[in-house]
């Protein structure tokens, strides 16, 4: 079983299907906030839905408006189950905690190659770790 250690984390334990991105993410620049689908032309995950996924993004992008966006997508029932960031910023953390979406930052080892989109993973913020439970 593959285990990834994370540096910082907040939120309850959740399980879900992984969505692994090589590119950063902003809920304002990249996401259609009515469908939960990444729609920015040229994004490596263009066309993918983040709804109910455990989303792995290397970096966070975007400005202050992202803070309300997570609560907005949670309200619309199109939120992911967790955000796993390599490097994030205060806005993402403030927004995720406000929306009650688990969020982590910093990973070892890098999930690229270790976790694939479609794998079933468990995010355990209290133990600062992510486990791959089932391969796609």
């Amino acid at each position: 079983m593959s285990v990834i250690r994370v540096e910082r984390a907040c939120g309850p334990v959740v399980e879900g299907e992984a969505l692994v991105s090589e590119e950063g993410f902003s809920p304002r620049y990249d996401l259609d906030r009515w469908s939960g689908v990444i729609t920015r032309p040229g994004h490596r995950l263009e066309g993918a839905s983040i709804v109910d996924k455990v989303c792995f993004f290397p970096v966070a992008k975007g400005g202050i408006a992202a803070g309300w966006a997570f609560y907005d997508i949670k309200w619309k029932k199109i939120a992911p189950r967790a955000f796993v960031f390599g490097v994030t910023n205060p806005v993402m953390v403030q927004g995720a905690i406000f929306a009650g979406i688990p969020i982590t930052e910093g990973w070892s080892p890098d999930p690229q190659g270790l976790v694939k989109t479609g794998d079933w993973v468990r995010v355990d913020p209290g133990r600062r770790q992510i486990e791959v439970l089932r391969r796609a």
Binding site: R33, G67, A69, Y71, D72
Partner: peptide, 13 residues
């Protein structure tokens, strides 16, 4: 920052 475009119906509630 607080307006209906960024907050949505959930934020208003």
């Amino acid at each position: 920052m607080g307006d209906i475009e960024v907050m949505g119906d959930g934020g208003l509630a």
